[in-house]
Amino acid sequence: MLLEHLNPWHRPASEFEPTAFAALLFQAPVKLLLYHTYHLLTYLRSTPKPSQQPPIRVVCISDTHNHTPENVPDGDVLIHAGDMTNDGSAAEIQRQIDWLCALPHREIVVISGNHDTFLDPRTRPSLSGEQRRGSLNWKRVHYLQHRRLSLTITVQHKDGDQVHTRTPLLAAEESHRRIRIYGAPQIPACGPMSVHAFQYERSRDAWSETVPEDIDILVTHTPPKFHLDLALPKGIGCEYLLREVKRVRPALHIFGHVHWGAGQTVVWWDKAHDAYVRGLSIESKWTRGLLNTRLWLNVVRVAYRGMRELLWDRVWGGQSPNTIMVNAAQMHGTTGKLGNSIQVVDI
């Protein structure tokens, strides 16, 4: 296995493994250029500032698979984006709930992942009798399954590590914020439908007009396509979810599922992003995109529009509508061990 990863021409045996750079350079050279051009210009733009003050600190985790990460950062809200377990038994899920409830965060929100089998009535029969036995006690955890949640968070103004309250009246007005969260677990099929929870056929639209428009945080298990999901050569996230996120434009979108995609990025809903998605969606055959005029045009659009947006941001201080996207997977690839950083976002 190690030799395969050292081989620059290695083609992954699974869609959840990254394709080596040299293999991508051969298979999809124009898309590789498009991908890196878009992400370089995105990286150079400034970080969005919280729309309201004081900010709410959101700690994001996912794909713990029965493990309990150490040194979880402090925050106002802790969100787990699914795959708490491996086998999905009631006992495994309860142990994760108990661990989450022992953390000091004021609010804890959880959705299911495809490995949390017990939570989907369609896949629960695949568990043994012992694995199905018992019921879950969610305690203070908010479990969201196609559900919207509104929370009032008490926060305080901070300068560095100092907490400031100026007058009792002003402190009372500024220390409460209301956030709206929507969670949904469904994913494009990646395994047996009778075993993996909340799956739908990849060609099916399971998202359009399902997410409320007034939410601040969206929590899903699957990534939107081409975003923190091993976008090359084809992407394994959901294109219908991407359209829905673009329609709703939440401040924060948290997901997991694709362990190698862990991290966070800002998606700016502008014409550079439109060209990026269009370009990666184009299918190229034997020419590998080298003779595809439409693909090259989208590379040019990403570079031109991206530079305009970058100048507008850095020179004039303007910003397009945006969403912070976080792949919060804790599992490091397919190693079976935790290794990815816990993501923290202020909104």
Rank of each mutant, 00 (worst) to 15 (best):
R177Q: 13
I236G: 06
R204G: 00
I56V: 15
W316Y: 11
G263Y: 09
T335N: 01
G289R: 10
L311A: 13
N340D: 09
P73C: 04
S14F: 11
W316C: 07
K158T: 13
R243C: 08
P321W: 08
G160Q: 10
I79Q: 04
N66K: 12
I215C: 07
H157E: 13
V267C: 07
G134C: 09
L149H: 06
S89D: 09
S62A: 15
V344F: 02
Y43T: 14
I153W: 02
I236Q: 12
E201P: 00
Q162Y: 01
T323N: 06
A275C: 02
G256T: 03
M84E: 01
S284P: 00
C101V: 15
H332E: 12
P18I: 08
T154A: 14
S51Y: 03
K285F: 15
P223G: 05
L100G: 07
D214H: 06
D216P: 05
L218M: 08
V58R: 08
L291F: 12
H39M: 05
A81E: 06
C60I: 05
A102L: 03
L24T: 03
K225M: 11
K337D: 10
V267I: 15
I217Y: 03
T220E: 10
G88R: 02
W9G: 00
H80C: 10
C60P: 06
I61G: 05
R95S: 14
I108S: 04
G113H: 05
Q156L: 10
L40I: 13
R124A: 13
R180F: 00
H146L: 01
V258N: 09
L291K: 08
T154G: 09
L230W: 03
A28V: 15
L338F: 02
H39C: 01
M307T: 15
T42D: 07
W99P: 06
Q264I: 00
E4K: 15
W316I: 02
S320W: 00
L3F: 13
G183H: 08
T287Y: 05
G279P: 08
R243Y: 01
L297V: 01
